[in-house]
Design a protein around this nucleic acid. Structure first.
Length: 403
RNA sequence: GUGAGAUUAGCUCAGUUGGUUAGAGCACUGGUUUGUGGUGCCGGGGGUCGCGGGUUCGAAUCCCGUAUCUCACCCCA
């Protein structure tokens, strides 16, 4: 038997219903916030991810599905969605167009990782990218949009917030932090020593408790923000509070991708295992420029759909449409015609084999049909069809021509 | 990439110190005083015990390898 590749799952019932419900819900809400659908290719030039996500990240360093295509191009299956959207944004000269442009997307992403609960090699994200607004008001709108989506799905969450600073205040802070790390190098773990060189900010996120003890003394990014970053962060907190969004400040929150600046946020859900981050995002004002576009402020987020699936509270399934069946072989063709007519406007399930009435009712029930329409001996003679409303439990006999 | 635990019917799981033909519940399917479901009763089909070796008179059971899944690390959605 040929099996699917490791970490690549089929999505079938009942997850597929949740999946579809999620996409519909998220799409409706994204449109309410003024976002429009956008689709970028799954395959992109490797250089795109190296430049945007960052060579220091694990994603680019060891998790990409990278290969050479038949034309000799160095290509990658996308490990995340933002890079492709930004590339398309620039390539289609939307950066020159200016103004405010808001997009949402959803689809598969690929990372060559060891799979476990909430972590797959092919997984799906729903994300949005808002271009052209530097104001922190858009940050708050984007965060409220995630909250709206999660609420609509019946998912409870915790929101973590941080500011990563800007090109003005981040580099000096980084210097300060590296200086501190060098002074305590003997007391921190090997991973942190490695991080000091590759991405020092990430040591703050280290799960090693002895490291955390050392970092209590570390310089705090929030104490080192420049005036504008600081006031933006304050404004953001006020906006969220005004709109009834609870949050906690987590100055250890570091986004894993290099392109983020200023606002960084993460939505956490307890009870889905170690992979508790269900959505993450933030501002990336420099990325468009960095990929050779006209400087354009931007903010966005991505939701990990698989991580959400088991948390989604589905609405009550409603009975819908018709079930058609016949009790005798001879009635099947006639049922087929009536059903086909009905199918032009309603959901219709047809049973092709003759069965007892009881069996048909069972069948109608199983496919969640509202009405069970059956032709038996009596109906065949009279040119009628027997219909039972499975919700009202009422029955009627109607002429076939009136279907 | 590292460490640990699992894998028996479509699903969730039993299975004794290694011993006839490997079981249950759910699901599916059929029947049940004649044409009434989701919710009675009775029956039926369905398993090379993850795969490959080994030990043994005999392996679901013990040993080795391998694949997959799960948990943790790393990292991330």
């Amino acid at each position: 038997m040929i099996r699917s590749l490791r970490g690549m799952n089929d999505i079938l019932s009942p997850e597929n219903e949740r999946f579809e419900f999620f996409i519909n819900t998220a799409t409706t809400i994204a449109k309410r916030y003024g976002f429009e659908y956008f689709e970028a290719p799954l395959l992109e030039e490797t250089a795109l991810f190296k430049r945007s996500v960052g060579e220091s990240s694990d994603i680019v360093g060891k998790e990409m599905y990278q290969f050479t295509d038949k034309g000799g191009n160095d290509v990658c299956l996308r490990p995340e969605g933002t890079a492709g959207v930004v590339r398309a944004f620039i390539q289609n000269k939307l950066d020159k167009k200016g103004g405010i442009q808001r997009f949402f997307y959803h689809g598969p992403m690929f990372r060559y990782e060891r799979p476990q609960k909430g972590r797959l090699r092919e997984f799906h994200q729903f994300g949005v990218e808002s271009f052209g607004i530097a104001s922190v008001y858009e940050d708050s709108s984007v965060i409220m949009m995630v909250a709206d989506i999660l609420k609509a799905l019946g998912i409870t969450f915790r929101l973590k917030l941080n500011s990563l600073g800007c090109p003005e205040c981040m580099p000096p802070y980084r210097q300060k932090l590296v200086g501190f790390l060098e002074s305590v190098e003997e007391h921190i773990c090997d991973d942190c020593v490695r991080r000091k060189a590759t991405n020092p900010i990430r040591v703050l996120d280290c799960k090693n408790s002895s490291c955390q003890k050392v970092y209590i003394e570390a310089p705090k990014l929030l104490d080192n923000l420049c005036e504008s970053c600081d006031s933006d962060f304050t404004t953001l907190q006020k906006l969220l509070t005004d709109n009834g969004i609870d949050f906690e400040i987590d100055n250890h929150l570091v986004r894993g991708l290099d392109y983020y600046s200023k606002t960084a946020f993460e939505f956490i859900s307890d009870g889905i295992g170690a992979q508790s981050a269900i959505a993450g995002g933030g501002r990336y004002d420099r990325l468009v420029e960095f990929l050779d576009g006209r400087p354009t402020p931007a903010v966005g987020f991505a939701i990990g759909i698989e991580r959400l699936l088991e948390l989604i509270v589905m609405p009550e399934p409603i009975r819908e449409g018709y079930y058609f069946g016949a009790m005798d072989e001879i009635g099947i063709d006639m049922v087929m015609q009536s059903a086909q007519k009905k199918r032009q406007s309603e959901r219709v399930i047809i049973e092709y084999t003759a069965k007892s009435l009881k069996a048909h009712l069972k069948g109608a029930d199983r496919v969640h049909a509202r009405y069970c329409a059956v032709v038996g001996e009596n109906e065949l003679k009279a040119g009628t069809i027997w219909v039972k409303d499975l919700v009202e439990k009422s029955e009627s006999v109607i002429k076939v021509e009136t279907i």
